[in-house]
Amino acid sequence: MSDIAAPRSSSRARNLKGGGRNRSGQTNFELYSWLFMRLSGLALVVLVLGHLFTNLMLGDGINGLDFAFVAGKWASPLWQVWDLLMLWLAMLHGTNGMRTIINDYAEKDQTRFWLKALLLTASIVIVVLGTLVIFTFDPCLDPHSTLSVCQ
């Protein structure tokens, strides 16, 4: 008696109750992903355009970029938080966009799997590396540094 299959109604009720799944038995992952692209996109417009304006338009623009410029910016918690947020949001936004493109154009299951595995690996490496760089940055890495903070 114990091996009678669960009636359809009970599994549907279980689905309706949640467990992160909607009525058709799928998760809402794609809905949240769609919403995330729009929310992170809005934030990135401000973060990226602000980043481009301060680095390329103000001062000497591209010619002013060097180690001392980075040290000067990351002396301020504002730019540390700015760059960290930009790194995480841009990488999540970009990785999710690439995932959509792989799903659209790679038709074989094997190809999709390996492309997504490669994408995920690259993204994790870049996010972890970038985060470590922001948190462990040392303006006085060079013991003979002439930067004013190191005197």
Partner: peptide, 17 residues
């Protein structure tokens, strides 16, 4: 570009030079 840009910026942890 972003992948490359994070990698080149990571050089600040190697040396200023």
């Amino acid at each position: 570009f972003l992948l490359v840009h994070v990698l080149d910026t990571a050089l600040v942890r190697v040396s200023p030079e």
